[in-house]
Design a protein around this nucleic acid. Structure first.
Length: 705
DNA sequence: AACGAGAGAGTTTTT
DNA sequence: CTCTCTCGTT
């Protein structure tokens, strides 16, 4: 063996790496060398003469999978190209594509992204004539998120609506009808949404014993990363594919579970030993990433959690540098202070070793403006997707037609680009195609020369079976002039986007896979790796699994972090806490927490004062040093070193921090039924009323349930 | 039936 | 501010 595993790994890691038969659960605290463990285990398997073809590695993003594969290849000094790796969703798609006919798909299958799903929903709603002219009818986005939540958590729509969207209870029947029809539409047109990928794969495995046997034989060794973020169906899929031998290694950290909103279920980790008999459990607790002062702070964030995670992270990386709590006057001046800090830090670290993290994509806008002004290059992760831009979707629609002729969405999107053709004509044309009614098509073609041109182009491309890049070239010749007219004002910018698309397409030789990845992965037009010497801006969710020397977290105020949407639900609030934990544990040497005094409210065009995030208020002030922006725009250290750095007025609030109430709902004469969030002694309640928001109400006006 | 203007509503996180 | 939906005009 080339690799000295004993020397390069600590005892727990070594045990996880060398246990290859039977189920293993690795509980890996933040920064404990989780990726290292997976990489070395891959190498170990191969050195034990396991054929890479028989290994399946499931990760949260394809980027993570690619990274691990590359590192294992470097260790082994050989290629592992035949290994199967990727996300659950991309793996599911690959399998479904392979066995599409067994599931009854004849025309090919297409993966929908969120906006495709919205198009379907609108189509279905119009067809059913539901909620027409009703302005308060829930938006398609809302409906879709309810549907998806129900499926991911495997609950009835009714349960989800009563719990998460009580104010929409009157629309329950309409939404259920739409849901039913939505399912029918997808089936009919060979469309799969993200959730379908998982459930259809499960169906495939349950209904076809031969396929199940085949896959069980094919994937003898399975590794699953970020196991705490898998949902119920993903857990069952692992069991189904692992089969009786159960050579599964699941790696995860219950304290880093941040996808419950999407149906992730921590029970997959907690119940692992019961689901897989004789599972060996390995805990990795030594942190190699962060300095001890940073860990002291993150440990305290976790200590406040309602559900305790038995964790004792320790580091050998000592340092005198405490995390900094920085208090700018507003979120706008925060942006200036952040850039100032980055300038300072960039003397010590390269830019790509610095990251600014935030709860939601839009929160970085002011920082982006300041960075542009200062001429600091940055790269943003999270927020809007490259492939959701209108012109990209247009081109992809043409390409989808070549892969899946039954894809009505793509027909509509593609043909709507032609003058004089709208949704109605598209539908008629589509029906004519499906029934082979050449008379109607011919009639339309005579009316519209451009239409004939498109149709013959698609026919030709379908017959040729070219590479995605070639197909894209042909389509662009046709589409460029359309785009020039359609987006006259910002045509050059969009043209760059198409070039990037061509760049991405050139790395694929299969059209189906290219199209699926455009929906399944947020493609990075600048290539897959982090750009050199570029600052990183990222949502906390997208920062998962990554690390930087210096991390700055902004907008740590109530209603932003935690998000105001999470306040209504105790469990969601706990998830916000774990999210902050994830954010802070990304830092190796330097951590800054920004708590602006006020937040700009763009509805009312004014600044509103903001309370520090409850997670920050909880922290003992010996864990950080505090800096405050004064009115001249400079930072001054706060000298207060008595317990509680928070100003007296706020501290009082903190001490009176209301307890959780046991009573869950109440009725208010005006606001209706609401959920009691907290009881503020002696006689006030903080209540969340659906559609109204958070209100503090005197108990006399409430009827408690 | 297609298309553009104008009003209105709502901003989490992601595969 | 930006995206979505409706309504009136061609």
């Amino acid at each position: 063996m080339k690799i000295d595993y004993k020397k390069e790994l600590n005892p727990s890691q070594y045990e996880a790496v060398t246990t290859i038969d039977g189920p293993v659960l690795v509980i890996a605290g933040a920064g404990s060398g989780k990726t290292r463990t997976i990489v070395y285990r891959l190498a170990y398997l191969v050195e034990q003469k396991v054929n890479p073809q028989n290994i399946l590695l499931l990760t949260f993003t394809r980027k993570a999978a690619g990274e691990m594969l590359k590192r294992a290849e470097n260790l082994l000094e050989r290629r592992l190209g035949s290994m199967h790796s990727g996300t659950f969703h991309s793996f599911a798609f690959a399998m479904l594509r392979k066995f599409a006919s067994a599931l009854g798909y004849v025309n090919g299958i297409t993966v929908m992204d969120a906006s495709d799903a919205e198009d379907v929903l609108k189509n279905v709603r119009d067809q059913l004539k539901i909620g027409q002219k009703d302005r308060s009818f829930p938006k398609k986005k809302t409906i879709l998120s309810l549907i998806s939540k129900a499926r991911n958590k495997e609950l009835d729509l009714e349960q989800v609506i009563l719990k998460d969207a009580f104010h929409l209870r009157n629309y329950l029947e309409d939404i259920e009808r739409i849901y039913k029809e939505y399912q029918v539409f997808k089936q009919k047109h060979g469309l799969l949404d993200y959730d379908d990928l998982l459930f259809q794969l499960e169906r495939l495995l349950l209904e076809h014993e031969d396929i199940r046997d085949f896959l069980q034989a094919a994937f003898q060794y399975i590794m699953v990363d970020e196991f705490q973020d898998t949902n119920l169906v993903q857990g069952r899929l692992i069991k189904l594919i692992a089969g009786p031998s159960g050579n599964v290694m699941a790696v995860g950290d219950d304290a880093q579970s941040i996808y419950a909103f999407r149906g992730a279920n921590v029970n997959n980790i907690l119940n692992f030993p019961e689901i897989f008999n004789n599972a060996k459990i390995v805990k990795l607790e030594q942190n190699y990433r962060s300095t001890q002062p940073i860990l002291n702070l993150t440990n305290q964030i976790l200590a406040g959690a309602a559900e305790k995670y038995p964790k004792n992270l320790f580091s050998t990386r000592n340092s005198k540098l405490l995390p900094q709590l920085i208090r700018p006057l507003s979120d706008l001046s925060q942006a200036r202070v952040v850039v100032q800090k980055i300038n300072e830090l960039s003397r010590k670290y390269p830019l790509h070793e610095i990251a600014v993290l935030f709860r939601a994509g839009y929160q970085s806008y002011p920082v982006e403006v300041e960075l542009n002004r200062a001429g600091i290059p940055f790269q943003k992760f999270g927020g809007i997707k490259f492939s959701e831009a209108a012109h990209i979707k247009d081109v992809l629609a043409f390409m989808r037609l070549i892969a899946n002729p039954a894809d009505l969405l793509a027909w509509t999107r593609a043909l709507s680009n032609l003058k004089g053709i709208g949704s109605k004509t598209c539908e008629k044309l589509y029906n004519a195609f499906m029934q082979g009614d050449n008379g109607y098509i011919e009639k339309q073609c005579q009316k519209n020369k451009q239409l004939r041109q498109v149709l013959s182009l698609i026919d030709a491309l379908r017959a040729n079976q070219d590479s995605p890049a070639r197909i894209l070239d042909e389509i662009l010749i046709f589409y460029q002039p359309i785009m020039r007219e359609k987006f006259a004002d910002d045509y050059p910018r969009r043209a760059t986007g198409l070039e990037q698309l061509a760049q991405i397409a050139s790395t694929y030789d299969n059209l189906d896979l290219f199209l699926a990845d455009m929906s399944l992965e947020n493609p990075d037009p600048d290539g897959n790796k982090l750009k050199e010497d570029t600052l990183v801006l990222s949502t906390v969710h997208s920062a998962k699994g990554l690390e930087w020397s210096a991390v700055l977290i902004i907008d740590l105020v109530e209603e932003r972090f935690p998000s105001k949407h999470a306040l209504m639900d105790h469990e969601e609030l706990e998830e916000e806490r774990r999210l902050l934990y994830v954010a802070c544990t990304r830092a190796r040497d330097y951590l800054a927490l920004f708590v602006p005094d006020s937040i700009y409210n763009r509805y009312q065009d004014m600044h509103e004062s903001a309370l520090p995030s409850p997670f920050i208020q909880e922290l003992d002030n010996s864990l950080f040093e505090e800096w405050r922006e004064n009115y001249t725009g400079t930072l001054a250290p706060v000298q207060n070193k008595q317990p509680g750095t928070i100003p007296p007025a706020q501290r009082q609030q903190r001490q009176q921090r209301p307890e959780q109430t046991n009573c869950h709902y109440c009725i208010h004469k005006i606001f209706g039924r609401g959920k009691v969030i907290t009881h503020i002694p002696p006689n006030k309640y903080k209540v969340n009323f659906p559609g109204v928001g958070l209100k503090t109400v005197i108990g006399d006006y409430l009827e408690l349930e």
